[in-house]
Design a protein around this nucleic acid. Sequence first.
RNA 1: GUAAUAGAAAGAACAAUCGCCCUAUUUUUAGGGAGGAAAGUCCGAACUUCCAUUCCGAAAGGAAUAAACAGGUAGCGGGUAAUUCCCGUCAUUCGCGCAAGCGAAAGAGAUGCGAACAGAAACGCUCUAAUUCGAAAGAUGAAGAGCAUCCCUUUGGGAUGAACUCUUAGGGAAACCUUUGAGAUGAAACGGCUAAACUCUUACCCGGAAGCAAGAACAAAUCUUCUUAUAAAGAAGAAAAAAGUAGUUCGCUAGAGGUAUUAAGCAAUUAAUAUCCCAGAUAGAUGAUUGUUUAGAAACAGAAUUCGGCUUACUAAUCUAUUACUAUU
RNA 2: GGAUGUGUGGCGGAAUUGGCAGACGCGUACGUUUCAGGUGCGUAUGAAGUAAUUCAUAUGGGUUCGACUCCCAUCACAUCCA
Length: 113
Amino acid sequence: MLPLKNRLKKKKDFENVFTEGKTAKSRYFFLKTLKTNSIDSRIGFIVSKKVSKKAVERNRVKRLFREAVRLDIARIKPGYDLVFIVLNSVKEKELTEIKKEVEFILGKYGLLI
RNA sequence: GUAAUAGAAAGAACAAUCGCCCUAUUUUUAGGGAGGAAAGUCCGAACUUCCAUUCCGAAAGGAAUAAACAGGUAGCGGGUAAUUCCCGUCAUUCGCGCAAGCGAAAGAGAUGCGAACAGAAACGCUCUAAUUCGAAAGAUGAAGAGCAUCCCUUUGGGAUGAACUCUUAGGGAAACCUUUGAGAUGAAACGGCUAAACUCUUACCCGGAAGCAAGAACAAAUCUUCUUAUAAAGAAGAAAAAAGUAGUUCGCUAGAGGUAUUAAGCAAUUAAUAUCCCAGAUAGAUGAUUGUUUAGAAACAGAAUUCGGCUUACUAAUCUAUUACUAUU
RNA sequence: GGAUGUGUGGCGGAAUUGGCAGACGCGUACGUUUCAGGUGCGUAUGAAGUAAUUCAUAUGGGUUCGACUCCCAUCACAUCCA
C-alpha cells in the first residue's frame, strides 16, 4: 500500500485528471497524467468489473499494481497526478512483468527522475 | 474389497526484510488485522426513520401496539429474539430406491374435472356370453365400481379379512396406535382427483412500510438584510435569523459475543460461575519477496450496520455408523 | 452495500383465470417479374433422425392428467437508491 500522501482519493481529483490529463497506452493499462505542481505526486488505480467479475481477482490486480509503483515511488517526479486504468489483458500476470511495464512507460514519458 | 446412504472434523504454522489500516502509549514502540461459506439476498430478528391507532401531557414531547384490515405458520410435542430454521417422535398416507435412506402432505367448502387421440362411455355408476346373474378375467387411457390372503373340479366358482357407520377396552405428552362387538352394502350404498393462482374454518404468531446509500449532529457555499463606494449592472465587507448542498463527525462494532467448567434435558437448548476482548476501512487496510516445517499448501473465494438460519460454490486426505453385493475363513 | 425487474427461432416481439407454443414484423435462401439491379409477388426457414417420432420458452428440480404461465434453487443481463 502506498503512503497516504501519495494516494489520489477525491472524486474531483479523478475527474480533473480525466478531463484535463494526457493519456498513454500500454499493453496492460492506460495511464492518465496531469501536472499539478504540488509537493508530492499522487497515484490512483482503477480496476473495473470488465477485468474480472470476482472481487478477489480485482483486489489481486490492484495490489500488484500498487506494489509495482510502491517500489519505484522514490524515483517518480513530484508534482503529478497519475491514474492507472487497468485492462483485461493483465490477468494472471506476475509482479515482475507488471513492474517492468510500469517502469518502461513512466521512463518513456519522462516521469522518472 | 467394491458401490452407496447418513453424519463428524479441517479450510496451514513459524521466521526475516520492505509497506498499509485500527487502538494504546506517546514519538517510536507494543497489541490486533477476512470466511466457512465473508457469496446468493432466499427467510428471520435487532436497530433507525416515516405512517396509523390508543394513552399521558397546557404545549413541546413521551410511551404503547389492544382490536380490525392485511399477512404469516401448519402431522404431533418441544426449542428460540424470531423464522420457510433446529431437536425429538419417526404417528399416518403417498411417491422414489434392491436396501440403508430420501422427499411431500393443517382441515373443509363450493367450483371444476377441457380440446384432441384412444375408448362403447371422460368424473365414474360401463362394455365384452343367445338371455339372466357374477366384487373372476380382459380392453382404452393421465384418470374408469376396486384391494389383500387362501382353496378348488378354472368360459369360471367359493371362503375369510380390511375398507364404510356405530361401538368396547387398553396404551401414549399428543398426532395416533392396538383391540371388542354389531350393522350396512352385492350395483348403489358410496367413492376418486382439483389451489404451489379461489373461498372459508380451526389453532398459534404478528401494528404497517422502507431501509445504515436507514438516520442524527456540526456546517463552507447559496439565498435574504445592512454598510461602503458607485450613474447602473456588479464588487467588497459585516451581521442576526433562515437554509441544510460540498464536507466533517457520530451511527460503527462489548455483542441474543467467544472459551472453559458445572447443573437441567434423550436432544435442540437453557441456567449459573470463571475468564477473554477477537477487523472496522470510506478511491475503501489485511500486501510483496524469501526461507523452514509438512504427503501437500493446492480449490471456492474478500468484511462494509450487526446477529441467527437456509441455499449454493469448493480442496486434499480422513474418521464413525448403516445398507447392498462379492470373495475368503 | 441495499432494493427491484427481465430472460421465448438468426434479430425484434406475441401468446397467462394453467389447456393447439412460436402469431406478426425484420433478416436469410430459392423461384418469379426486369436488359440488369432494386421494389413487388410466391414458397421455405429451431435441433436430431431415412421415417415414425423425440427434444426444444436461460439452466436444474417440484406441484398437476397437463406448466412459457404456479412454487423452489442456480446462471446471465438490466434498472433504481448518496
